[in-house]
C-alpha cells in the first residue's frame, strides 16, 4: 500500500508581515511505501504535524491531494474516510489521547470495537508486553503517567495492524530505554509485517531506526537521507 501526496499544502488566513496568507506547509509531494520507516525531522512550528495530519486523513489540505491506493482521501465522504482511518491507518498523536472512561485495554481495542470488528486481543496483549504496560491492562488513563499514556497510544495503533502508522513525537515523554523499545517496535513492525511507518520527531534518537529521513523547515520539505 502506498500513500501518495501530490503537491499538498496547507494555507491559513493569518496576517503575517505583509501577507494575509500563512503557509504551514508549502506544496510538497512524497510517497509513503510499505516495508520501511520514514522519519520527518524539524524544529517546532516547522509544519511537521500539519503534514502528518494531512497525510493521515485528519486535516484537509488547501491544495493538492492525498491518494491512498489511488483513491483521493479527501474526496471520500466522512463515513468512508472514517472507516478507512479505522481499518488502514494508525495514528499516535501528540499528548494525551485516551478515552478516560475506558480502561487501558478497552482503549487499545476501541478502534475495532467501534465498528464491531473482531478485537485483536492477542496482538494487543503482545504489544503491551513488548512496551512494558501489560500490568496496566485494567487501569484507567487518569492513573497513568505521560510515558505510559504514550505507550498505550502506540499499542492502540500497532495492535490493529494498520497499513500505515503515523506517529507524532512518539518518544517525547519516554526515557531512553522506552524510547529504544518503541522505535525498535516501529522498525520491526515496518520490516517484518511489510507496513509503512511515518514518524514525526525533533529528537535525533529516531534517525538510527529510519530507512528514509525527511526534514522540514518553514513548511518546506526536503529529503535528508534516502
Amino acid at each position: 500500500m502506498v500513500i501518495k501526496a501530490e503537491n499538498i499544502a496547507k494555507r491559513y488566513f493569518r496576517k503575517t508581515g505583509r501577507a494575509n496568507n500563512f503557509f504551514a506547509v508549502k506544496p510538497v509531494s512524497l510517497d509513503i511505501r510499505s516495508g520501511g520507516t520514514a522519519v520527518l525531522m524539524g524544529r517546532s512550528g516547522s509544519g511537521k504535524t500539519t503534514l502528518l495530519n494531512m497525510l493521515s486523513g485528519l486535516l484537509s489540505p488547501t491544495e493538492g491531494r492525498v491518494l491512498i491506493d489511488d483513491r483521493d482521501l479527501y474526496s471520500l465522504d466522512d463515513k468512508a474516510l472514517s472507516l478507512l482511518r479505522s481499518e488502514k491507518i494508525g495514528v499516535v498523536p501528540q499528548g494525551r489521547s485516551a478515552v478516560d472512561t475506558l480502561t487501558v485495554f478497552e482503549n487499545i481495542l476501541l478502534p475495532a470495537a467501534l465498528y464491531g470488528r473482531a478485537q485483536p486481543e492477542k496482538e494487543a496483549q503482545m504489544w503491551m508486553e513488548r512496551l512494558n504496560i501489560a500490568d496496566l491492562r485494567d487501569v484507567r488513563p487518569a492513573e497513568l503517567s505521560g510515558g505510559e499514556l504514550r505507550r498505550m497510544a502506540i499499542v492502540r495503533a500497532l495492535a490493529h495492524n494498520p497499513e500505515v502508522l503515523f506517529a507524532d513525537e512518539p518518544t517525547g515523554d519516554l526515557d531512553d530505554e522506552n524510547t529504544h523499545l518503541v522505535l525498535s517496535a516501529f522498525q520491526e513492525y515496518a520490516h517484518e509485517k511489510n507496513k509503512a511507518v511515518f514518524i514525526v520527531t525533533h529528537e535525533s534518537d529516531a534517525l538510527g531506526y529510519a530507512d528514509l529521513v525527511y526534514r522540514m523547515e518553514d513548511g518546506n520539505l526536503t529529503v535528508e537521507r534516502q
Binding site: L58, K79, R85, P93, S97, L114
Partner: peptide, 12 residues
C-alpha cells in the same frame, strides 16, 4: 478528537 482519530465517523 481521540475517537475521530481512531476512525469514529461524525455520525457515530
Amino acid at each position: 478528537a481521540v475517537l475521530r482519530l481512531i476512525g469514529a465517523s461524525r455520525r457515530m
